[in-house]
Amino acid sequence: MSTPPANQPPARPRTFRHQRILRIQLDAYDRAIEVLADTVRQKHWPITAAIGIANGGLAPARGISELLHIPSYHVNAKHNPSDAPYTEATGTVTYDLSPLTTRPATSSLGGTVLVVDDICGTGATFATLLPELTAYLGPDVALRTVALCRNTGSVFDPDLWIWTVDDWVWFPWEPTLAAEITIEDLPILSRVRTA
C-alpha cells in the first residue's frame, strides 16, 4: 500500500449527528445505480470504463458498468482504521493500484473513466487517488467521480452523487445492523446531485 504525498492538506472531519444509522435499502440502492447510470449517459457519455474503489465502491462500479456495458476495474484504498460505525478517518489514505496496473487492458484506457466509491466522507480518498490514476492512465484520460453518498463534512464534491448525509451510512452489502440501533431508511430518489 502507498501513502499520499506529505503535502496533502488534512481532511476535514466527517459530520456525524450520532442520532441514527442511515440505511440504504436494496430497492433504494438499485434505483440509485439506475439514476447514476442514466445521468452518466446524459452528461458524460461516452465512458470507456469504471474503476471501483475497494471495498465500498466495488458494487456500485459493477452495477453502473453493467448498465452502461463498459468494463469495470478496481483499486484498493483505505481511510478508516475499521468499519465500525462512527470510526473517524485517519486523515491518511493508503492505496494499492496493483489490481488496476496488472490488467493489460487498462494500460490502453482512454477517454472518460468513472471513479466510483460508496461514499465521499471527507474527500480525501478521491483527492488522493485522482492524481495517481491520472499519472498512470495518461494525460488524455478524463476522470469523473461518482459516489452514492456525500457527507456534509466533505471538502470535495464528486461529479455525481445521490444522497447528502450527516450521519453514518449502512450499505446493502454490509453485515446486518444490531437490533438496538436507531435506523432511518434513506428515501428512493430519482435525481442526481452534481458538483
Rank of each mutant, 00 (worst) to 15 (best):
L67P: 08
L68T: 05
L68W: 08
H69F: 13
I70P: 10
I70E: 11
P71C: 02
S72P: 08
S72H: 12
S72E: 15
S72A: 15
Y73D: 13
H74N: 14
V75Q: 07
V75F: 10
A77C: 11
A77Y: 13
A77P: 10
K78D: 14
K78G: 13
D83A: 15
A84E: 15
A84R: 14
P85C: 09
P85M: 08
Y86V: 01
Y86G: 01
Y86S: 04
Y86F: 11
Y86A: 04
E88V: 12
E88W: 13
E88P: 15
A89W: 03
A89N: 10
T92S: 03
T92A: 03
T94M: 03
T94I: 08
T94W: 03
D96Q: 03
L97C: 02
P99F: 05
P99E: 07
P99Y: 08
L100F: 03
L100R: 01
T101C: 12
T101Q: 13
T101I: 03
T101V: 01
T102R: 09
R103W: 05
P104K: 00
P104R: 00
A105I: 00
A105N: 04
T106G: 05
T106Y: 05
L109A: 01
G110F: 05
G110C: 11
G110T: 12
G111Q: 05
T112V: 04
T112L: 02
T112M: 03
V113N: 05
V115S: 00
V115Q: 01
V116K: 00
V116C: 02
D118Q: 04
D118T: 05
I119P: 00
C120P: 00
C120N: 04
G121C: 03
G121I: 00
G123R: 00
G123A: 01
T125Q: 06
T125D: 10
F126W: 02
F126D: 06
L130T: 12
L130M: 11
E132A: 14
E132H: 12
L133Y: 07
T134H: 15
T134R: 14
A135S: 07
Y136W: 10
G138K: 04
G138A: 11
G138N: 02
G138L: 11
D140S: 14
D140W: 07
V141M: 10
V141P: 07
V141T: 01
A142D: 14
L143Q: 06
R144D: 02
T145S: 12
T145Y: 11
T145L: 03
V146P: 06
L148W: 08
L148E: 09
L148T: 07
C149N: 04
R150H: 09
R150Y: 12
G153Y: 09
G153D: 06
G153F: 10
D157I: 01
P158F: 06
D159K: 10
L160V: 04
W161C: 02
W161D: 00
I162S: 10
I162A: 10
I162K: 14
I162W: 14
W163M: 08
W163T: 08
T164W: 08
V165M: 12
V165T: 15
W168P: 07
W168Q: 04
W170R: 10
W170S: 13
F171D: 09
P172F: 13
P172Y: 11
P172D: 11
W173R: 08
E174Y: 07
P175F: 09
P175Y: 10
T176C: 01
L177S: 09
A178L: 13
A179W: 03
I181R: 08
I181S: 02
T182K: 14
T182R: 13
T182D: 15
I183A: 04
E184A: 12
E184K: 14
L186M: 13
